[in-house]
Design a protein around this nucleic acid. Sequence first.
DNA 1: TCAATTCTTTAGAGTTGTTCTAATCTAATT
DNA 2: AATTAGATTAGAACAACTCTAAAGAATTGA
Lengths: 130, 130
Amino acid sequence: MLERLRDAGLRPTRQRLALARLLFEGGNRHVTAEQLHAEARREEIAVSLATIYNTLNQYRKAGLLREVVVDSGRSWFDTNLEEHHHFFHEATGALTDFEAEGLAVEGVPKAPAGTEIDRVEVIVRLRDPQ
Amino acid sequence: MLERLRDAGLRPTRQRLALARLLFEGGNRHVTAEQLHAEARREEIAVSLATIYNTLNQYRKAGLLREVVVDSGRSWFDTNLEEHHHFFHEATGALTDFEAEGLAVEGVPKAPAGTEIDRVEVIVRLRDPQ
DNA sequence: TCAATTCTTTAGAGTTGTTCTAATCTAATT
DNA sequence: AATTAGATTAGAACAACTCTAAAGAATTGA
Ligand SMILES: [Mn+2]
Ligand SMILES: [Mn+2]
Ligand SMILES: [Zn+2]
Ligand SMILES: [Zn+2]
């Protein structure tokens, strides 16, 4: 973790290390700022909400996290850096991955003049049956 | 317009009619609440921001509009009800359509137990070249 | 080793987008 | 025309997020 932060040009402070452990140890995950803050509090890690936001954004800029936009009004951060896509269940707010392998998006038109394609994102919105 | 609102179970009030004209006459468009409010003011239509929000949400629930989620922090509403997808240029906030015809999304995994697929959304994020 | 420097954290204030409240107004119904 | 149901509004409230400036911690380098 220490290395990972140093490599990203971030001082390995108490807070950043603790949050890195929550985020990166124990499998990929999706979190919002409030969720991570609540989790830190539960684990008795003293860290302010401002620092949660600072840290998530720094990790994103450093490429340690990416943002997933599925809901206006709330930012989700994703520790899974592999090419993949998302199920989003509107009713429950559940956000889950599915692998890009096996998925084919074909016939994407070329980017408008003066721009290029950064990323093709597929979001599968779910609802309750019937 | 009057018919359209009546069919949706909405009283055709002065405000709803004026907004329907802005939204639905003259081709498909994407708007945010603030944009529509500014436009109404420009056209000297007296309508409060609360009514803009109420109306956009009512139109969405009635199926006259859909919401496009491309940016956390701001809701976009789309008058284009045909199956289509979006380019989103992060840098400028430009949101443009491309037709679903010609696009194939294959290999979408089946929905998690207890849910079903509502819609498959493709968002092509654009950046400036290089 | 220990200033000195630079960067980080923090509480709380500020901002933005959106929703709520409750008073007033308007459309529909009788 | 009177009544009723529903709509609009200003402004307050709220939620998510960012900013500010003061205090604290990591790093540097003498
Ligand atoms: Mn939402
Ligand atoms: Mn954004
Ligand atoms: Zn993911
Ligand atoms: Zn569109």
